[in-house]
Design a protein around this nucleic acid. Structure first.
Length: 338
DNA sequence: AACGGTACCAACCGCAAAAGG
DNA sequence: ACCTTTTGCGGTTGGTACCGT
């Protein structure tokens, strides 16, 4: 169990390897194998500690090492494996031929971790971040697609789509948390056909559900609960804190039309109160009536899109986050909540 | 051109498990 | 069973390239 003394040796060289040192190490290992790493430096004529030689070989000089950028599939696999294994870099590296644990670790820390953060995903837990702090990063999130290589385009397009879904979720969550009791007795009731998962993004199945439609995890602060398995074929109710969201954004049993706020029946209210009184434990910091109208337009379009979506993000592209002429008014919503 | 900030990544450090005597 | 040595791993550091001002 004792520590290796090799790196405590004095007089051994540290720092970057020279081409000459690399050549010596490669030639020695090609001819003799590495054998004992501790004895290798002396046998190979290198003024390095064995540990340094081993690291140089395993992380850089090994002939089967694949250099260059990580492609899209590798990125997806790393994210997926990290969601399962955590920082088990060597285990993750074993699943990516030609990649070293050090390389994957570096890539995670410099690229993928930031990507997930920008998408509002906690890179440690791979869960959606429950706070709204990531909204502050939205401008970066959408500017994110400006400096890409071709391999990253698809992943980042997915990331942008995910961000949109999460933005919608957060907006509705915020509206729910800022309503007054007099204007909160409304019920979201809409229908979603098909599913919305992040499978194509490479997040593990358990995380897929947390991010989109179909989650039944009551720990989620907000999610859409889907009943796809039953005869109702995709009847979906928006849920907040495990209870039906107390807003009627739009009833999609009828044809698409200008949404209206429909007070829920007393029975509905009672049920909601019984399910979770916290939903009415709320502050009222913004003009909820105005924001609700805007949110209704926004959510209405989202819901329509989700009705027609049958794969990962499909028609979420149809959400217009940029057009100032649109009646979505999402920017206004953001301004009001900021 | 100079400077400061940032990103990247090779290499190092220290801990702990595995292997060997 | 115990101790020492070796190896592997994950976190961190520091040099350097790049970019914006």
């Amino acid at each position: 169990m004792g520590r290796s003394p090799c790196c405590e040796e004095t007089g051994v060289k540290k720092g970057p390897w020279t081409p000459e040192e690399d050549k010596k190490l490669i030639e020695y290992i090609n001819n003799n194998g590495h054998g004992s790493w501790r004895r290798l430096p002396k046998l190979a004529g290198l003024n390095r500690c064995g540990k340094s030689c081993r690291l140089r070989w395993t992380n850089y000089l090994r002939p089967d090492i694949k250099r260059g950028r990580f492609d899209d599939d590798e990125e997806k696999l790393i994210i997926h494996l990290h969601s399962i294994l955590g920082n088990k870099w060597s285990t993750i590296a074993a699943r990516l031929p030609g990649r070293t644990d050090n390389e994957i670790k570096n890539y995670w820390n410099t690229h993928l971790r930031k990507k997930l953060l920008q998408m509002g995903i906690d890179p440690v837990t791979h869960q959606k971040r429950s706070d709204l702090g990531f909204l502050a990063g939205i401008p970066n999130m959408f500017a994110f697609s400006g400096n890409l290589d071709m391999n990253a385009l698809k992943l980042q397009a997915d990331a942008a789509k995910l961000a949109r879904v999460q933005l919608l979720q957060s907006l509705i969550q915020l509206i729910a948390s800022t309503s007054s009791p007099s204007s909160s007795d409304l019920l979201i009731n809409h229908h979603v056909y098909g599913s919305s998962s992040l499978g194509s993004f490479g997040v593990s199945p358990t995380q897929d559900l947390n991010l989109g439609v179909g989650n039944t995890n009551n720990n989620q602060e907000f999610f859409m609960e889907s009943n796809n398995g039953g005869g109702d074929n995709g009847n979906t109710v928006m849920m907040i804190n495990g209870c039906p969201c107390p807003y009627n954004i739009h009833d999609h049993n009828s044809q698409h039309s200008t949404p209206s706020l429909v007070p829920a029946s007393p029975e509905t209210l009672d049920n909601n109160n019984n399910n979770n009184n916290n939903n009415n434990n709320i502050s009222n910091n913004i003009s909820i009536d105005q924001t609700q109208d805007q949110a209704n337009c926004f959510a209405d379009e989202c819901i329509d899109i989700s009705r027609n979506s049958n794969t990962s993000f499909g028609d979420w592209d149809g959400l217009n986050f940029d057009d100032s002429n649109t009646d979505l008014c999402w920017k206004d919503i953001l301004e009001q909540i900021s």
